[in-house]
Simulated scan of single mutants.
Amino acid sequence: MTDMIRASGLVKRYKDVEALAGLDLSVPEGKVLALLGPNGAGKTTAVKCITTLIKPDAGSAEVAGVDVLADPAGVRAKIGLSGQYAAVDEHLTAYENLVMIGRLYHLGKARAQERARELLERSDLTEFADRPAKTYSGGQRRRLDLAGALVAEPPVLVLDEPTTGLDVRSRQQMWDVIKELVAGGATLLLTTQYLEEADRLADDILVIDHGREIAHGTADELKARTGGERIEVVLADLEDREAAVRVLAEVAVDTVRVSDNGRELTAAVSGSATGDLLRVLQGFERETVTVLDVGLRRPTLDDVFMALTGHAAEASDGESDDSEKEMAQ
Rank of each mutant, 00 (worst) to 15 (best):
D303T: 02
A152S: 15
S26W: 03
A73K: 08
D293S: 08
A61K: 12
G185K: 15
G65P: 09
K15Y: 08
R169V: 00
E118W: 04
L206I: 08
L25N: 05
E118L: 07
E319H: 10
L248C: 09
A328Y: 05
L296I: 14
G22P: 04
E62Y: 05
L53P: 12
E221G: 08
D160T: 04
T93H: 14
A64N: 12
A46Q: 11
E121L: 13
E127Y: 03
R241G: 04
V269L: 05
P162I: 06
A328L: 13
G227R: 09
R298G: 01
G184E: 14
A219Q: 05
T187D: 07
D254N: 08
G42I: 07
H216G: 10
A313M: 03
T126L: 06
L206S: 03
E239H: 13
E90F: 15
T192H: 03
L235N: 05
V234Q: 09
S8D: 13
V247R: 13
V158S: 04
Q282Y: 06
P154G: 10
S320M: 00
L189K: 08
N39E: 01
L98A: 05
A312T: 06
E121Q: 12
T274N: 12
S8L: 14
Y95R: 15
K109E: 14
E114F: 06
R230T: 08
D24F: 06
R279F: 01
E18S: 15
H91E: 15
M174I: 13
R241D: 01
G102I: 06
T266W: 00
G165Q: 07
L53V: 14
L92Q: 11
V151I: 14
D89Q: 08
E264R: 11
R225H: 07
Q173L: 11
R117T: 14
A328E: 14
T163I: 01
K78R: 15
K179Q: 13
H216C: 08
L35S: 03
E285F: 05
A244Q: 07
A249S: 15
G59D: 13
D57H: 15
L10Y: 10
T44C: 15
D237C: 02
R257L: 05
K48R: 15
L189G: 13
L120V: 13
V151T: 07
P162W: 05
D322R: 04
Y85C: 03
V245E: 12
C49P: 13
D89P: 14
E285S: 15
L119R: 06
E221V: 10
A110T: 11
R286C: 04
R230W: 10
V156S: 03
G102K: 09
M327H: 09
V256F: 02
D317W: 01
L10W: 08
A215R: 07
R263P: 01
L281V: 14
T309E: 02
G108L: 03
S323I: 02
L104C: 12
A61C: 12
L104W: 02
R200Y: 01
G165M: 04
T52K: 10
T135A: 11
V68C: 08
A133D: 07
S82A: 15
Y95I: 11
V251G: 08
K55C: 14
S272C: 01
K223R: 13
T192P: 09
V68D: 11
Q173G: 00
V256L: 04
M327P: 02
D303W: 07
G65K: 07
E127A: 14
A77Y: 04
V158E: 00
G262C: 09
K43H: 09
G22N: 08
V17E: 03
A94T: 11
L235W: 02
